[in-house]
Write a protein that binds this DNA or RNA. Structure first.
Length: 581
RNA sequence: GCUACUGUGGCUCAAUGGUAGAGCACUUCACUCGUAAUGAAGGGGUUGGGGGUUCGAUUCCCCCCAGUAGCUCCA
């Protein structure tokens, strides 16, 4: 049967195609398990899913069975026919079919909504469309996984079974997609972290990562960079305690709004908490003395380690942990300085992300249900953030009700290797802390006034940022961050002396060098060094020892041929200085 | 936390109702070698923890812990 060519480049076509496949999935499930109740089945990034309520637990074997059934439906080439029903009839229609979830969906539709259905063979689904014309147009399908998902995303409601799948207009495209996912999985930071001996996790502390010597090189490089840049951008630095008493957390509001996520301890019978955020400590530091309006804007940074009791199921390598170091800063300002400060921080974040070649998107989160302050304060704060973004032409996604309990925020999201996004940078305007801690400054009128404040992070958490960096670079870090910058390999023991001298020279130039003079074949040493993702591998044999040269291989560019030792050093020093990716 | 799945030496994985095996890594010896694995020998595991069924459990059952995917929640 000759098929019309489907243009997958067009978004509408892609969505229709996936959406139609999700209907085929639903039909297949109803064929196999008539008692299954259908919830929703949308098209998503890279594929589709369908949520179903079924007592029988679907396993991986069943996915194959379902796929077989789907192929039958595709082969039958049913036409997709759209029809509309008035609300009462629509509800009756789904009630007769015992589709409780569909009934609920129809009941929640707006009064004037058009209630449309799509029919394919004897299967009918409530759906706004659009769809392909017939099931036969679907070519390559694959069901990828089954997982739990709450009905309507509400953890208080029933957990349904969600079947994920993907589909393409040709088998070749599907194969390519699967291959791409397999490749991406090789960049998983948890895998590379183990292979490169960067960090580890252990049952002694789930979600509390250990940083190993190689990982510490990366971490320290990032922290040194952070200090240099913050110096340039006019920041001071402080360090506040990890443990502070109950009263402080009551004053800050964390005790009332964040208790479930906090760890507690007792000291001499007094209640203390381990800090989940750095702001209260920063407030205490601020209050140590009097300030003039001339001191503002005052930017105070802190690499602050926080502990948060995250749900066990949320933990994920370095991306989601229970203790992490925020590259925090609090900026105290006059009202007229707010916009410029927000713009300044946004540009700062952009500079840093660009240096690493990261793509990101921005989200503006507004007032949540559980929050402090008045509507007026929130309006002012939300407006300040959105206007700053407008002024510098940064586009953002609005995420209503997802702000912090003390203020709205701009979040900067980065992607991991398989396209999951993680919030890293954030700028949060806070009208509550200055009030709660009674922060003041003396204005030009000689009176006390309340400063405005923003919290912000750039990396977000050093741990998460390193996780993203590992996946982004696949472990081939920019030279200035790389744990081992150069590895020298001798061909035979005859070159040990020369190699040792080269090593000294490189070390004097400040490079991180390892020397392998083991009595092993060069191929063996080379393989090991390559597996370690060493930035530069230098082979040293008789020729190099005589000519004062190195035979160099870059982990990014491959074989670079023979280079004089002095030139090699100069090149690397320059590469580090320029922070080449 | 919820749903499903997984948990075997440092790592990657195999096997079984009769107390476990490979490769890599590690140690020792030999080989002195030119761009992704030289050969040989050796050491290393109360099969995540606890309980139960059984003559016997690592395997079957229950509970707990941890991990993976997704949901929820978040840097």
């Amino acid at each position: 049967m000759a098929k019309e060519k489907v243009n997958f480049e067009e978004e509408q076509v892609r969505i229709s195609y996936r959406h139609t496949t999700s209907h085929i999935l639903a039909q297949a499930i109803k064929n196999l398990w008539p008692e299954a109740k259908l919830a929703i089945g949308p098209s998503i990034k890279d594929g589709f899913y369908y949520d179903i309520d079924l007592d029988y637990k679907i396993n991986d074997q069943d996915l194959l069975k379902i796929m077989k059934e789907m192929k039958k439906i595709i082969k039958a080439n049913y036409k997709l026919e759209r029809f509309e029903l008035p609300r009462d009839e629509a509800i009756k229609f789904m009630e007769e079919r015992k589709e409780d979830y569909k009934v609920e969906l129809i009941e929640d539709l707006a009064d004037d909504a058009v209630i449309s259905f799509y029919r394919q063979g004897d299967f009918v689904d409530l759906c706004a469309g659009p769809h392909m014309d017939s099931t036969g147009q679907i070519t390559a399908i694959k069901l990828t996984s089954v997982a739990g998902a709450y009905w309507r995303g509400d953890e208080n409601r029933k957990m349904l079974q969600r079947i994920y799948g993907t589909c393409f207009p040709s088998q070749e495209e599907l194969d390519n997609y699967i291959k791409k996912i397999e490749e991406a999985k090789k960049r998983d930071h948890r895998k590379i972290g183990k292979e490169m001996d960067l960090f580890m996790l252990n049952d002694v502390g789930p979600g509390f990562p250990f940083f190993l010597p190689n990982g510490m090189v990366i971490r320290n490089s990032l922290e040194n960079f952070w200090r240099e840049e913050h110096n340039k951008h006019g920041y001071q630095e402080i360090k506040t305690p990890l443990i502070m008493n109950e009263e402080l957390w009551r004053t800050s509001g964390h005790w009332d709004h964040y208790k479930d996520n906090m760890y507690f301890t007792k000291i001499d019978d007094e209640d203390y908490a381990i800090k989940p955020m750095n702001c209260p400590g920063a407030m205490i530091a601020y209050k140590r003395k009097m300030y003039s309006y001339r001191d503002f804007p005052m930017r105070v940074g802190e690499l602050g380690q926080v502990h948060r009791h995250e749900l066990s199921g949320a933990l994920h390598g370095l991306m989601r942990v229970r203790t992490f170091t925020q590259d925090d800063a609090h900026i105290f300002m006059l009202p007229e300085q707010v916009k410029d400060e927000i713009i300044g921080v946004t540009k700062f974040i952009d500079e840093v992300y660009k240096l690493f070649g990261f793509k990101y998107f921005v989200e503006l989160s507004t007032r949540p249900k559980d929050s402090m302050g008045t509507d007026q304060e929130w309006d002012m704060a939300e407006t300040a953030l959105s206007e700053a973004m407008k002024e510098i032409g940064v586009e953002y996604i609005l995420n209503e009700g997802d702000g912090a309990f003390y203020g709205p925020k701009l979040d900067f999201h980065l992607e991991d290797s398989i396209g999951r996004t993680w919030q890293c940078g954030t700028i949060q305007l806070d009208l509550q802390m200055p009030q709660r801690f009674d922060l003041t400054y003396v204005g030009s009128d000689g009176e006390k006034h309340r400063p405005l404040m923003i919290h912000r992070v750039i990396f977000g958490s050093i741990e998460r940022f390193i996780g993203i960096l590992i996946e982004h670079t696949a472990g081939k870090f920019p030279l200035w961050i790389a744990p081992v910058q150069v590895k020298l390999l001798t061909v035979t023991e005859a070159q040990s002396e020369y190699a040792t001298k080269v090593k000294e020279k490189l070390e004097i130039a400040g490079l991180r060098v390892e020397l392998d003079i083991r009595n092993e074949k060069i191929g063996y040493k080379l393989r090991e060094a390559r597996n370690q993702r060493t930035s530069y591998i230098c082979v040293i044999g008789e020729i190099e020892a005589k000519g004062d040269t190195l035979s160099v291989r870059s982990n990014k560019e491959g074989d670079l041929g023979t280079i004089g030792v002095e030139d090699f050093i100069a090149n690397l020093v320059k590469e580090i200085e320029n922070k080449v990716m």
